[in-house]
C-alpha cells in the first residue's frame, strides 16, 4: 500500500498549479485550455465557479422536503382493532415499546441523525471555503468522504415502508399503506445526495494552498 512518491511532501503539486486541467472522472490530465476529456468525453473544468451555488440550492430543497417528512405519517397501519398513523419518530418510539431497541436505533440514526448531520456537515464544508475554520483540509476532506458515503443509507426507511406496504396486505386483518411522508423523505434524501455531489472537494485544498502562500 505504498503512497505515491512525493519529492516535497509539504508542497503538493496540483494539476491547476502546473497549468493543466484534470478530468475528475478518469484522472487523465490535459492542457488547461481543453474543455472535453479525450479519454472519457467528460466536460473538463479546472474549478466550477457555480458548484457552491448548486450545493446550497440542492440543500435548501432537501431541507424543505425534510420538514413535512417528519410532520406527516410515514406508515398507515390498519388492524382488526385499530388504525394508526406513525411518523418517523413515532415509528421508532413504537419499536422501543415493543422491545426492539436496536432496530429503533437504526431507524433514528438513518432517518434523523444522518440527514441532520448531513445538512450541518455540508453547510460547514461550504462555509469553510470562505471563512477560517479549525479543522484542517485533510480533516474536512475526510468529513466530505463520510458525507458522500453515508448519505445514501438514509433511504432505509423508504425501503422499509415499501416492503411493509407490499407485504402486509391481509384484507381486513392487517394492512399497511405508505403515508405522504414517504415521498417527501425520499425526495429529501435524493436532494441532499445531489447537494453533496455538487460539492467540489478540490476547493477544500485550494483554500489551504492560498493560506500557506
Amino acid at each position: 500500500m505504498d503512497d505515491m512518491e512525493s519529492a516535497r511532501p509539504q508542497q503538493t503539486v496540483t494539476a491547476r498549479g502546473s497549468g493543466l486541467v484534470a478530468c475528475t472522472r478518469c484522472s487523465r490530465v490535459w492542457p488547461a485550455d481543453r474543455d472535453i476529456c479525450g479519454r472519457c468525453h467528460a466536460p473538463l473544468q479546472s474549478r466550477d465557479p457555480t458548484a457552491l451555488s448548486r450545493v446550497w440550492a440542492w440543500m435548501a430543497v432537501g431541507i424543505i422536503c425534510y420538514i413535512p417528512a417528519n410532520l406527516y405519517p410515514m406508515l398507515l397501519t390498519q388492524t382488526l382493532l385499530s388504525t394508526s398513523k406513525s411518523t418517523i419518530i413515532g415509528g421508532a418510539i413504537e419499536l422501543i415499546h415493543h422491545g426492539a431497541v436496536g432496530i429503533a436505533i437504526i431507524i433514528i440514526v438513518a432517518s434523523v441523525l444522518i440527514p441532520m448531520g448531513k445538512f450541518v456537515a455540508i453547510a460547514y464544508l461550504a462555509l469553510s471555503l470562505k471563512h477560517q475554520v479549525k479543522l484542517s483540509a485533510a480533516a474536512r476532506h475526510r468529513l466530505y468522504e463520510y458525507v458522500e458515503f453515508i448519505g445514501r443509507w438514509s433511504m432505509i426507511d423508504v425501503f422499509v415502508v415499501a416492503i411493509l406496504s407490499s407485504l402486509v396486505q391481509l384484507s381486513a386483518v392487517a394492512a399497511i399503506n405508505p403515508g405522504p411522508a414517504a415521498i417527501t423523505f425520499a425526495l429529501s434524501v435524493i436532494f441532499t445526495m445531489l447537494s453533496a455531489q455538487s460539492f467540489d472537494p478540490r476547493s477544500i485544498w485550494d483554500a489551504e494552498e492560498e493560506d500557506t502562500e
Binding site: 519529492a7 496540483t14 494539476a15 498549479g17 475528475t24 472522472r25 484522472s27 487523465r28 490530465v29 472537494p201
Partner: peptide, 21 residues
C-alpha cells in the same frame, strides 16, 4: 515533481478528489 520540460500528459495522473498531480 513536475519539470518545466513539456511531457506527455498521458504519463500523469491527477487525484480526482484533490487535484494533486
Amino acid at each position: 515533481t513536475v519539470d518545466d520540460t513539456p511531457e506527455d500528459e498521458g504519463e500523469l495522473i491527477a487525484c480526482p478528489q484533490c487535484d494533486a498531480l
